[in-house]
């Protein structure tokens, strides 16, 4: 795996038209650390995640990797350094599982076919799905599809991984496998930002938990502090409803 980097968001603002979605977000993730972002729907969590790899460009504020602003980098080059996993998996349905991995390896990392296949198979093996290499995504369960999506992102050897409610679309019995894989990745020292409703995961895996509401981080800290002694009344109310 590539060496991880630290990630910082500074005063990130973003509006869709007149609707202010992010209103000055700060977040710090140490190199190799895992930050979980929790909060009610519509609080701007997924939008925030998309400013990190600039699928959305912040109106104001800064995004830093290892202390260096990335807002002037080539977005395509930046996104090679940042893997992203989506709620709906977003595998490419018209190609095999293997090709989902080899296509970006060949076209973006410019590996030759043999290298790409070897790397893709290694990543599929790592998520326990080497046997599914030749299947179409539609023939896999949701949990398997999400693990393939994680493998596809990891194959690009990113320095940061973003997870956007990666288990929200899964049947309950499939959630565990995906969370276990994410926890394993965290243990191996990948810098991760995880938007999640899985409070148990946040408590056990995160180094930092950030609670977002209405476009700002209202409270952030280590999981024990956030879950055991929440300060902000909004966070207390949120936790009383989800726990």
């Amino acid at each position: 795996m590539n060496t991880s980097v630290s990630l910082s968001l500074r005063d990130v603002h973003l509006a869709f038209g007149r609707h202010q979605v992010l209103r000055g977000v700060d977040l710090d993730v140490a190199s190799g650390g895992t930050a979980c972002v929790i909060g009610p729907s519509g609080s701007g969590k997924s939008t925030l995640l998309r400013t990190v790899n600039r699928l959305l460009e912040p109106d104001r504020g800064d995004v830093l990797l290892d202390g260096r602003s990335v807002l002037r980098d080539d977005p395509d080059a930046l996104r090679q350094r940042i893997g992203m996993v989506f709620q709906q998996f977003n595998l490419f349905p018209h190609m095999s599982v293997l090709r989902n991995l080899t296509l970006p390896l060949r076209r973006i990392r410019k590996l030759d076919e043999d290298e790409a296949v070897a790397q893709a198979r290694a990543e599929l093996d790592r998520v326990g799905l080497a046997a599914k290499a030749d299947a179409r995504p539609a023939h896999l369960s949701g949990g398997q599809q999400q693990r393939v999506a994680i493998a596809r992102a990891l194959a690009m050897q990113p320095q940061v991984m973003l997870f956007d409610e990666a288990t929200s679309a899964l049947d309950p019995e499939l959630v565990k496998g995906v969370l276990a894989l994410m926890a394993e990745l965290s243990t191996q020292g990948m810098t991760m930002v995880v938007v999640t409703h899985e409070m148990g995961f946040a408590r056990q895996v995160a180094d930092t938990v950030a609670f977002m509401d209405a476009g700002v981080v209202l409270e952030a800290g280590d999981p024990a502090a956030v879950f055991e002694s929440p300060q902000h009344p909004r966070l207390r109310r949120f936790l009383s409803q989800v726990l």
Binding site: D125, V127, A131, A133, D134, R147, A180
Partner: peptide, 21 residues
């Protein structure tokens, strides 16, 4: 869809993460 029956051998040992199905 399977054009390479050999890879079934690679598959199961060393599988990381939870096994589903």
């Amino acid at each position: 869809l399977t054009d390479d029956p050999d890879d079934l051998d690679l598959a199961l040992p060393g599988a990381a993460g939870g096994n589903q199905r």
